[in-house]
Each structure stands twice: as C-alpha cells, then as structure tokens.
Write a protein that binds this DNA or RNA. Structure first.
Lengths: 335, 335
DNA sequence: TTGTACGCGTTATCAC
DNA sequence: GTGATAACGCGTACAA
C-alpha cells in the first residue's frame, strides 16, 4: 500500500534522484553502467512515477475532460470512442463526465475538471443556455475548449460540427428523385440545436420546391417514449386526408422503430407507399426490418477530428477559433 | 491563462496562506472579519484550489477509475451511471476507460490510473484471463479494487455480482409453468463468464426436469452481427424436426430482435407457439414488437451498490473480501 | 486567532 | 556525467 518513490530508487541504486529522473525520462545523457544500475532498481522495486507530482511542476496533467449529455445515446458513445482512441496515442487520459443534459451540471463538472488541471476540455452537444450566455466563450480564455455541435450564430468558439444541413438536403433530394412529393419531417418537441437546424433546412427546401410542409412533432425525442410517440404520431398523420409518402426522421429511434412500426401497423408498404430515412446510422438502423435508410454522421471520425483539433489547440498557441465541418453520407438501405 | 494561487489570495487580503487555507477548508477557527476579507479576495480573484497540489499532500485524489469493456452496451452504461451518481455525491470524480474487452488494455489502463493515484478502481466485467491469472488479486494489495461480475471459482477479490443464476432459474421455471417443455438456450459462442454461468444453470435445470437440452450457439453475441445470426439460427432450429417452444436468450439483442424476427419470419405466433425471454431489460426490450419479456438485472442499482462498496473500502480499513449478490427480477411482457 | 516553515514527489536549474 | 537545491501549490505541525 505504500508507494515507492524516486527517493527509494536513488537510495537503492546509490545515485541521486536527479540521475534517476534522467534515466526515467531519457532526457539527459547518463553513463551506461549507472543507467543499468538504476533500471534494475526501478524494476526490482516496481517504481512508477507519481504523475501528480510531475503534473504539478510541469503545469500539464496530460489529461482532458470530455463531457457528454448521456452515455446511452450511441451517437455520443461513438464520438467518445473516436476521441479516446486518438488521445490515448497522444499519451492522454480522459475524464469522461455525463451531464444528463443539465446546464447546471455542465458548469459544475467543468469546474471540477479545471480544478483538476485538465489540459483541455471537449464538450459534446453543449446546452444552448450555456452557449448563448457566453459562458463557453469566457471559459475558453482559461482552458483550451472544443465544442462538438451545438453551434449558434455569433458564438465565437472552437467547433467541430456535423454538416447536418447537407445531410438533410441530400435526403430530401433523394425523396424527390424517387418521385415523393409529400415529405414530412419527424422531430422531437424540445427546442434543440439538432432538431432546429434540420427543420430550418427542411422548411427552405420544401418552400423552394413549392411543396406543402408537414412537421410531425413528438414530445420526447431521446428516450423510451420516443418510439411509441413516433409510432402514434405517424399513424395519425397517415390516416389524415393528405398523408405523406416520405418521412425524414431526426434520429434512428423515431425513424427506424417508431415510424417504421407505424407504417407497418397500417398495412402500408415500405418503401413503395412511404419512404423513411432516419439519422445517425446507429446500430438500430442496421438491425431493424426493413433495414433503415439513414444519414450517416460518421461519428467515430467526428471524434477523431475533435481529438486532433484539441491536441493542436493544447500544443500550439495558434488559437484562432475554427469551425470544422464534417460531411455526412446518405446510406440507402431498404426503407 | 495564468492560475490564481493561494499566495495571490493571501497577498490580496493581507494575511498568510495558512489563514487562507483555513478559510477555504473551514477546518480551524478564523476571526469573522478576516474570514470576510479573505472570502472577498477569493471571489474577486476567482480563486479555486489546485486539486493536484492538495492531492499530493493529502495522499488522496478523490478520484476513482472505472473500466468497462464497451460504451455501446447499455448494460454497462446503466451501471456506470449508477456508480457515478453516487460517487459524485461523495465528492469523487471518475476516470472512465473502455478496454474494448482487451486483457492487455485492462492492464495498461489500470497502470495509467494507479500512476495518477486514483483512490480506487472499479472494473466492470473483467476479462477471464486477468482474473484467473491472479493479476487482480495482486493489484488489490496496492489499491482498493472492486470487480463487477466476472467471478470465477477460487478467486479472492471484492465483488458485486448479478445473481444471473437466479434469473435464469426464474425464467426457466416460468416457461415450465406456462406448459413449455422444449426449452432452448440462445447464447454467444465466445467463452464468457456471463454465457457460461447461464448455460451451467440451464443444463442443471433441464437435466433435473428430464428434458432434452438444446443450446443455440451463435458466433457473435455482442455486435451488429448478433441479430442476424440469432435470427438465422432460430429459424434453422424451428424448422428442425423437434423445434423448441420456448427460447431463453442471453441478452436482449439476440432475444428481442434476433429470435423475435426469426419466429415472425416463419409465421409463428409469439407467445403461443414460441415464448421468448431475453436478458438485461435494456431499452430495446421495451420498444420491440411484441414487447419482450426479460430478466431485469437492475443495472443502476448494481452500480450504486458498487459505488457504496468501493467507498467503504477506500475509507474504512475493513478489507475483508466480500461478494455481494444483487437479485434479478423476471419481467413478463408480451413475448 | 494567526503566521512560519516544512513536506508531498517530481522536474528544472545550475553548479561541479 | 552527476548532484545539490529550488520550485510547483497546497495543508498542517508548531510556535507565537
């Protein structure tokens, strides 16, 4: 239970702690014979350096903090995996925090992380309140900060973003190509960055084509109830006198399970009667029947991009704010 | 970018750093008027203590490490959430690492965590190799260590465990009560703690009842391919000359999506022709049609239990190894 | 009630 | 090549 320190190694090998440090860090020349002596002592005592002490003097902990609204959303899991894998190669360890989507938690956890002297912070899908309040812009003055999605006009921060606009556009164009002329958008009811930008693009597109807009709004977009609500809402609109023949859903849950189940329950055919496209290309879209067409946001790649960017911000001082967009890919399957 | 230290506060408020420290930690009496002076300085300078320095001297970082094989498995997400929520209340921050199920990663990441002086480690679903090799028993001598599941006979460690045996038994008994007499077990092919104990209980039960055992073994139990493989395997066995009328699946993916789809594809009725019970009570079991009966492992509770146990281990010195079992609950839905 | 001085384990600086 | 020693920021005996 008692830790072996550099002192113990120095004593055991009959040299000073300075020399031991040099052997460990290989940053200064050391005589071959003493190097071997020290390395043997390190081995036999099982010494490993206390990273706390090192961090204190080097003013760098080689840690970053990652904040995510949730661990249950596969979108986030993929992004995190992407970040982690790259950062591990850079020699960083990560604090991963989940905020449950609470703005207050974001701030509390970020405080805890900065007190722990993290070298940088990556915030996935920040809450609008904290973005528009200027909180993040202020925070960025004190610590390298990278936001993933959640961008609002006029906010000056470093961002890595999905080009969801392009994804929506591609999906809508595909519907039209396939001869669909009554296109509905299925979204969650809460005000949310990701829903709102999709709706904006949708409205522009529909207006441009001279079509009739039709927005299906369900209450909860991100939990168990989503599926049931989406199914009900889709069945209702399909029974109306001017039902859609195409549905673009804001994520795979509502699209792949909710909308698909609704269409099937009414005995309609997918994709002949109704085409459905989801969003995110999560595993759910691949296992459902029929297999769901969806917009791939390349989440792992998004995470990798974020890792490289934050690393760059932490090491270089070129702190020009950048917004990096990652393109999406429409994946056509059976729906 | 430059940090405010306790020195700065001391200078600004005209007292010594000792006094500042006392005001911050409220651990010694300080005169009211000086306390206010100091608090004002803390406020105006925006001082927050450097936890690194504090940890170094107190020999405790108030951090724990959590290791999980994967972030994409909802079982693990729930457990982690359970742990985190409790530990946050205790004032701990967590390092969350995912090992991708690689034994070598487990060791590498644990080394990184101990070098960072975590106060304790919680390992979810440890790899068998490291458990039986004695690695964890050795590690536990140096740092409070708690394992979640992955228990093998004779291993002396602190554990929190799902009573999966009881869950399997309850499900099998339910099948029998419902008049099912040809019960199959659907499991992943890899050697794995969680599959193996379920199969053991299954074999005992079936033998005890004088029934015919039938084990459906698919290659991959934990990813995209699972569902397709489970569906195929279930369809094959249902077409055989002695098909099962009940299937117990080792998780909700194979059970809720794979097996259900297989049965439906053959035009059979659930539950009249075939009853299906899954495992884990993940969200998938609630959104599938028909809604899946499943064995709830109470994952959040499992995590909370783990948090309380590791906290106890870190604070008290009563380090008797304990194995704590958490009961399961059979949830009957439509399948 | 307050302040001085030491120590936590390491790296950086400067002498030898 | 090597070794004292200062420094990182904080908590705490001990002294006043």
């Amino acid at each position: 239970m008692k830790r072996v320190t550099i002192q113990d190694v120095a004593k055991a090998s009959g040299v000073s702690i300075t020399t031991v440090s040099r052997v460990i860090n290989k940053n200064y020349p050391v005589k071959e014979s003493t190097r071997i002596k020290v390395e043997e002592a390190v081995q036999s005592l099982g010494f490993t350096p206390n990273l706390l002490a090192r961090s204190l003097i080097q003013n760098s902990t080689k840690t970053i903090g990652i904040l995510t609204p949730s661990l249950e959303n596969l979108f986030f899991s993929e992004v995190i995996k992407g970040i982690d894998n790259i950062m591990k190669d850079y020699g960083y360890t990560t604090f991963l925090c989940h905020t449950e989507g609470e703005p207050a938690n974001e701030i509390e956890m970020i405080n805890s992380l900065t007190n722990r002297q993290v070298d940088g912070i990556v915030m996935i899908d920040p809450r609008k309140e904290n973005v528009v309040s200027g909180y993040f812009e202020e925070l960025a003055k004190n610590v390298p900060l990278l936001l993933i999605n959640g961008h609002y006009k006029g906010v000056q921060c470093n961002y890595v973003l999905n080009d969801a606009e392009a994804g929506v556009l591609e999906a809508l164009r595909y519907f039209v190509e396939q001869g669909k002329d009554k296109i509905a958008l299925l979204r969650g009811g809460k005000k949310s960055y990701s829903y709102d930008i999709k709706e904006d693009v949708y409205n522009d597109f529909i207006a441009g084509k001279g079509l009739e807009p039709s927005i299906i709004r369900i209450k909860d977009g991100n939990d168990v109830r989503t599926v049931e609500q989406a199914k009900e809402a889709v069945m209702t609109i399909l029974r109306s006198k001017n039902p859609p023949n195409a549905i673009l859903a804001c994520n795979d849950w509502m699209g792949g399970v909710g909308a698909v189940n609704g269409v099937k329950a009414l005995g309609l055919n997918i994709p002949d009667d109704v085409r459905i496209i989801g969003f995110d290309n999560t595993i759910i879209s691949q296992i459902i029947e029929p297999k769901l067409s969806t917009v791939d946001q390349q989440m792992t790649k998004l995470g990798q991009l974020a890792a490289k960017r934050i690393y760059n911000m932490m090491t270089n001082e070129n702190s020009e704010n950048q917004k990096i967009y990652l393109e999406t890919k429409l994946i056509i399957r059976e729906s």
